[in-house]
Design a protein around this nucleic acid. Structure first.
Lengths: 210, 210
DNA sequence: AATTTATTGTGAAACAAGTCACAAAACATG
DNA sequence: CATGTTTTGTGACTTGTTTCACAATAAATT
């Protein structure tokens, strides 16, 4: 039943996020329209890649005068719109968990952390804008706020057990910060962020390539 | 001169990290030897993929009796060994920066954060095991500790400026948490972690695929 | 209104990554 | 020690992704 779900975020989707970032930058600088090669240069990909990506997502430009930035932003936001005001919980209030519940940017992107959880009662007394609750209350909160996605920031040793609980309580997507390959049912989305791996990769490349 | 450096971590290298994680798990469970299909299953890839990856990195097993876990771990660590006890700095002591300087796992992986920096003098008075210094002292510290890699956790508005300073001071690798596509010279490694994108991706997939 | 120019949109070609299939090797067994 | 079994290592094949090349077309120019 339990299986490794290797969830690799599609590259074109990732690039879509990058395009959005660049477009916001262009808009801030006062631009109104943009060509595929401008955006490509800014995003670090070829102009053809930009056009292909837009083509995949059915985003149309205007031959000769390129794309309207507002249209692009609107189209990209449309792709993600149904997920606005999604409720998210954070499990594990260590260093990473605490930083995430205080991270302002989620709100700007309409993602709302409604509660956090920790086994340590001393942490439960504290608040960081949102309440820190005992693990036992998770089911209740998940049901009450229709939470589908959880951020998992517990120690690696308890990551799998906690993931099992999350799945049992109805969570279908996990953003996992624990350095563990979680075993979850096939239909559960898991995305891993391993900070050590990321840092070590950068160090690797600074010493190797070039 | 300044160019977008799109640094995409090679997939096989990323898998190598995953294998290491799994191998440590197997070892903990008392295993001594392992077959490509065990490791593949655990890591969420095919057995052939495992063997191909090892073949690329010149890691040899034993026909019929598979791989010795210790040999594998040793071989993988060997690939990254020259970067042990690398000194790293953190720039920007907001939520993310604070979490990272307190993140224990870096030490376990022999990556040492030697100092952090912030423009805000009120933060400079504090300490989190390591000193929080004014930006002006960056050059001195980078030289003193031969720092090559920096974690950039400043607000997006000052990310590019800060990156420019880092590069000027001799940094060659940046782990960037600011939601900005940094423009740096070709030979500088940049790896981006965009927490909003990651969370939004998970939400996207929980609602779309399946 | 015809001509030139610049840019998109997309099939075809090239390239990269992953899977398959099987020979070679190591160990087990009779 | 020959035979059978299992697993690695890798060349061939397949699948997926990116780049190329160019027709279609919108705007600018004459």
């Amino acid at each position: 039943m339990k299986q490794v779900t290797k969830h690799v975020i599609r590259n074109d989707l990732k690039r879509l996020f990058t395009y959005r970032l660049c477009l916001i930058g262009f808009k801030r600088k006062g631009f109104d329209r943009i060509y595929s090669y401008n955006l490509g240069e800014e995003a670090g990909v070829t102009a053809e890649q930009v056009r292909k990506d837009f083509s995949v997502f059915k985003i149309k430009g205007n031959k000769k005068s390129g794309y309207k930035i507002n249209d692009l932003l609107h189209a990209i936001n449309e792709i993600f719109k149904y997920q606005h005001n999604q409720h998210v919980i954070v499990v594990g209030m260590g260093n990473i968990g605490k930083a995430l519940v205080q991270y302002k940017r989620f709100i700007l992107r309409k993602m709302v952390i409604v509660a956090s959880f920790d086994i340590d009662p001393s942490k439960q007394s504290k608040r960081f804008g949102i309440p820190v609750m005992p693990m036992e209350m998770m089911g209740e909160i998940i049901k009450k706020f229709h939470v589908k996605v959880a951020i998992l920031a517990v120690p690696d040793i308890s990551a799998q057990d906690t993931a099992n609980i999350l799945v049992d309580q109805g969570i279908t997507g996990i953003l996992n910060f624990a350095p563990v390959i979680l075993k979850v049912p096939d239909d559960i989305i898991v995305s891993n962020i391993n900070l050590c791996d990321e840092l070590e990769s950068v160090i690797y490349y600074t010493q190797k390539v070039m």
